[in-house]
Computed example of a mutant assay.
Amino acid sequence: MTDHNTHAETTPRDAQSSDAHGHEEESTGQTFPFTAVVDQEAMKRALVLNAINPAIGGVLIRGERGTAKSTAVRALADVLPTREVVTDCPYGCPPDDRDRMCEECRERVDAGEDLPTESRKMRVVDLPLNASEDRVVGSIDLERAVREGEREFEPGILADANRNILYVDEVNLLDDHIVDVLLDAAAMDENIVEREGVSFRHPAEFILVGTMNPEEGDLRPQLLDRFGLVVDVEGVNEVDDRVEISQRRSAFDADPEGFRAEYESRQADLRDDIVAATRRLPDVSLGDDVARLIAGVNIELDVDGHRGDITLRRAARTLAAFEGESDVSVRTVRRVARMALEHRLQRLPFEEEEQDVMSAFHDVRRELGLED
């Protein structure tokens, strides 16, 4: 199942680059408002759910060129809430959670120091395709380590990404050794750098967001499985939607500040909804019937391991929290099932019929006697 384009204009430039809008936004110094994105409900939902609950595991957005995937990702940062950080920490450690701090912040806390704090907005941190491994993980000054016995560490992109969004455009084109680094850091929420017997580690909790054009190659299966949610997007075919997309884009290009001002109240409302959902999330319950439904769908689809079950549970609970519900319903599960499971299906060579997430969902729902 695919969803429609956002606010990309169907210009030749759009047809040539999947991140054309990102480039346009940089030229104005402004980002297109997230709430001004036309349609694309599944993509917006997946991004917002990860903002509320990073434990979902990030999102991969797949689609043809010119579908403004990059624009939507960059726009997300503007509706994210602020969070408390240790002011002088290069990793933005949380001042009230020792277990998630870097070694230096822990040592300062243990010594009785009152850490300086400030509120800081989350950011979208780019990982360029041509980035070297040292640029991604950081580098250790080996000469100083040998000469003076001190570890001098230069933080990299993973340090910047801690407690932020790590965004990889054309993620399917990443070098294998960088993919391995991302897989390790995502699995441990920590970046470990080892050079010539000298090692350094720091927290690396990030929301991994990737965009790609499937026509330019596949994603490594190990990395695809690491994404909690996957959403497919395509161009708009409805006349009214295309007109609205072009009008909004033209208005933004003509007056970015004025256009953003028109959407500020909607942006603020979404920001407040994300904060409220984050607070509600721990109290959302998932009943036995719904748990059996989730397990049954994964079994029916022959999904390997338990990541599908866990991700679908997390996504359903988060959507319920976002919509102000105290319990996860069958309908809530249905609305996130495809994006949580479809990329985990086993595609066998020469298979005559592809497995379908929604068919399996309804089959299991009926077997359990549950109302949609």
Rank of each mutant, 00 (worst) to 15 (best):
T10G: 06
T10E: 12
D14S: 13
Q16K: 04
S18N: 14
A20P: 00
G29M: 11
P33W: 09
F34S: 13
F34C: 15
F34H: 13
V37Y: 02
I56Q: 10
V59P: 03
E64Y: 09
S70N: 04
T71H: 04
A72E: 03
A72D: 04
P81Q: 05
E84A: 10
E84C: 08
P90G: 11
D96C: 01
R100D: 07
E103P: 01
C105V: 05
R106N: 12
V109A: 13
A111T: 01
A111Y: 00
G112R: 02
G112E: 01
K121A: 11
R123G: 07
S132F: 03
R135T: 00
G138L: 10
G138N: 11
S139D: 14
R144I: 00
A145P: 00
R147F: 00
G149C: 08
G156E: 08
I157W: 04
N162I: 02
N164F: 03
L166H: 03
Y167G: 05
Y167M: 06
L173I: 11
D176G: 11
H177N: 14
V181F: 02
L183Y: 10
L183H: 10
D184S: 12
D184I: 04
A187V: 04
G197S: 08
S199M: 04
F200H: 06
P203K: 12
A204G: 12
F206A: 09
L208I: 05
N213T: 03
G217H: 06
D218V: 05
D218K: 07
P221Q: 06
R226K: 11
R226Q: 12
G228L: 04
L229A: 05
N237W: 02
N237Y: 07
N237P: 01
R242K: 15
R242L: 15
R248K: 15
A251T: 11
D253N: 02
G258L: 13
A261W: 04
E262T: 08
R266P: 02
R266M: 13
Q267P: 03
A268G: 02
L270I: 07
R271V: 09
D272V: 00
A276H: 01
A277E: 08
R279L: 06
L281F: 06
V284F: 13
S285M: 10
D289E: 12
D289S: 12
G296T: 10
R307H: 11
R307S: 15
L312T: 14
R313I: 03
R314Y: 10
A315R: 02
F322K: 09
E325H: 12
V328I: 07
V328E: 10
S329F: 02
S329I: 00
S329A: 11
R331N: 11
H343R: 05
P349L: 08
F350A: 13
R366F: 09
G369V: 12
D372H: 13
